[in-house]
Deep mutational scan, measured.
Amino acid sequence: QEELVKAFKALLKEEKFSSQGEIVAALQEQGFDNINQSKVSRMLTKFGAVRTRNAKMEMVYCLPAELGV
Rank of each mutant, 00 (worst) to 15 (best):
Q1R: 11
E2I: 10
E2N: 11
E2W: 10
E3C: 15
E3S: 12
L4R: 01
V5N: 13
V5M: 13
V5I: 14
K6P: 04
K6Y: 10
K6E: 14
K6N: 12
K6Q: 13
K6F: 10
K6M: 10
K6V: 11
A7S: 08
A7E: 04
A7M: 06
A7D: 01
A7W: 05
A7Q: 06
F8D: 00
K9M: 10
K9W: 10
K9N: 05
A10L: 11
A10T: 08
A10Y: 08
A10R: 08
L11F: 05
L12Q: 00
L12A: 01
K13L: 12
E14T: 12
E15P: 09
K16C: 11
K16D: 03
K16G: 04
F17E: 01
F17V: 04
F17Q: 03
F17L: 06
S18D: 04
S19V: 05
Q20N: 08
Q20F: 07
G21Y: 12
G21L: 14
G21F: 12
E22V: 04
E22N: 06
E22S: 11
E22C: 03
E22F: 04
E22W: 03
I23T: 00
I23A: 01
V24Q: 05
V24H: 04
V24T: 07
V24Y: 05
A25E: 09
A25K: 12
A25R: 11
A25N: 10
A25S: 13
L27I: 02
Q28E: 08
Q28H: 11
Q28L: 12
E29L: 10
Q30F: 07
G31A: 03
G31H: 04
G31E: 02
G31D: 02
F32Q: 01
F32M: 02
F32L: 02
F32Y: 08
F32E: 01
D33G: 13
N34M: 09
N34E: 11
I35T: 04
I35D: 01
N36A: 05
N36M: 04
N36L: 05
N36Q: 06
N36V: 06
N36Y: 06
Q37H: 10
Q37E: 14
Q37R: 15
S38H: 12
S38L: 11
K39V: 13
K39C: 08
K39I: 14
K39G: 10
V40K: 00
S41D: 14
S41Q: 13
S41F: 08
R42W: 13
R42D: 14
R42Q: 14
M43Y: 06
M43P: 00
M43V: 01
L44F: 03
L44Q: 01
L44H: 01
K46Q: 14
K46A: 15
K46M: 13
K46S: 12
F47G: 02
F47L: 13
G48F: 03
G48P: 01
G48Q: 07
A49H: 02
V50I: 14
V50D: 04
R51K: 14
T52G: 09
T52C: 15
T52Y: 08
T52W: 06
R53F: 15
R53S: 10
R53K: 13
N54L: 03
A55R: 07
A55V: 08
A55F: 05
A55E: 15
A55W: 05
K56N: 13
K56R: 07
M57S: 10
M57P: 02
M57A: 10
M57G: 15
M57H: 14
M57F: 12
E58R: 06
E58L: 07
E58H: 05
M59Y: 14
V60G: 02
V60I: 06
V60W: 03
Y61L: 04
C62L: 06
C62Y: 06
C62N: 05
C62R: 08
C62H: 07
L63V: 04
L63S: 03
L63G: 02
L63T: 02
P64Y: 05
A65H: 11
A65V: 11
A65R: 09
A65I: 10
A65P: 15
E66V: 05
E66K: 05
E66D: 12
L67M: 11
L67P: 15
L67V: 15
L67D: 15
L67S: 15
L67I: 14
G68I: 08
V69T: 15
V69L: 07
V69Y: 05
